[in-house]
């Protein structure tokens, strides 16, 4: 199977000008490949740079070194590390989804519309998009009482599920998950895993960071261990 993504010698160094040029290491010399339709889990202690990798792929961070070769349906082979912003935005709209560790929710938009937005953006009828959004909310066990409320007032776990539903509803080709189940209890976690497994069966490739290994091993085909990488670095 062809790789959908190849991360090659990716490094992210933060140059803190306001701290007199202090340098903070985000992640260093990361390389892995992801075959299309498969999923990979990134493992490692806090602060080793797991989130940084995902953010570099999504281009919330500008990589300092290395390449992130993505095989796009629309644009062919694209280096996400250096592609023009409009290409990145187009890919975010159509191919690459991201569920962040911390929810950034739009104010004053109902939960239903937050979830439906991506579909409407891609041209789905409003009615149909809302219908599908209700399905997703039901599936992730969000009480119907909340559908018309603003997610900014939701509990951590509810917000997280809204975030997942919002990303999953458009069935992206590549899904980046940063601790999507961190604040969920067992029952809702099962619902999330079930939804993600279905996405995977339908062809979505996944890169995920999971705080509990149990969840991770239900979803991923292989792992990339940052602590191994760290000790390897230490040896050198």
């Amino acid at each position: 199977m062809n790789d959908i993504l190849a991360v090659e010698n990716l490094s992210k160094i933060f140059m803190m000008h306001i701290l007199n040029g202090k340098v903070i290491r985000g992640c260093e010399d990361i390389s892995f490949t992801l075959p299309e339709g498969e999923s990979i889990g990134i493992l490692g202690p806090s602060g080793t740079g797991k989130s940084s990798i995902l953010k570099c792929i999504y281009r919330t961070y500008i990589p300092t070194e290395g390449r992130i070769v993505y095989h796009s349906l629309q644009f062919g082979t694209v280096d996400l590390a250096s592609a023009p912003e409009n290409i990145i935005l187009a890919l975010r709209n159509t191919e690459i989804g991201y569920v962040s560790q911390f929810l950034k929710i739009m104010p004053r938009v109902s939960a239903l519309d937050v979830v439906a937005e991506g579909l409407i953006k891609r041209g789905t009828e409003k009615q149909e998009a809302r219908y599908r959004a209700r399905e997703h909310l039901t599936r992730l066990q969000i009480s119907p009482d909340l559908w018309d409320a603003y997610p900014s007032t939701f509990s951590g776990g509810e917000q997280q599920r809204i975030n997942i539903a919002r990303a999953a509803i458009v069935k992206p080709r590549l899904m980046l998950l940063d601790e999507p189940t961190a604040s969920l209890d067992g029952r809702t976690r099962e619902a999330v895993i079930d939804l993600l497994l279905e996405l995977k069966r339908e062809g979505t490739s996944i890169i995920g960071i999971f705080h509990d290994l149990d969840t991770m091993f239900q979803l991923v085909d292989k792992t990339y261990d940052m602590s191994v990488f760290d000790s390897y670095k230490a040896e050198v």
Binding site: F14, M15, M16, H17, I18, K55, R59, T60, Y61, I62, E85, I88, L89
Partner: peptide
């Protein structure tokens, strides 16, 4: 000039870092 989330989370220029901070 960049993606808004990048400007906010990974500002490159001294001045932008000051502004965000």
């Amino acid at each position: 000039i960049g993606l808004t989330d990048q400007i906010l989370e990974d500002p490159q220029h001294v001045y932008t870092q000051l502004l965000i901070n």
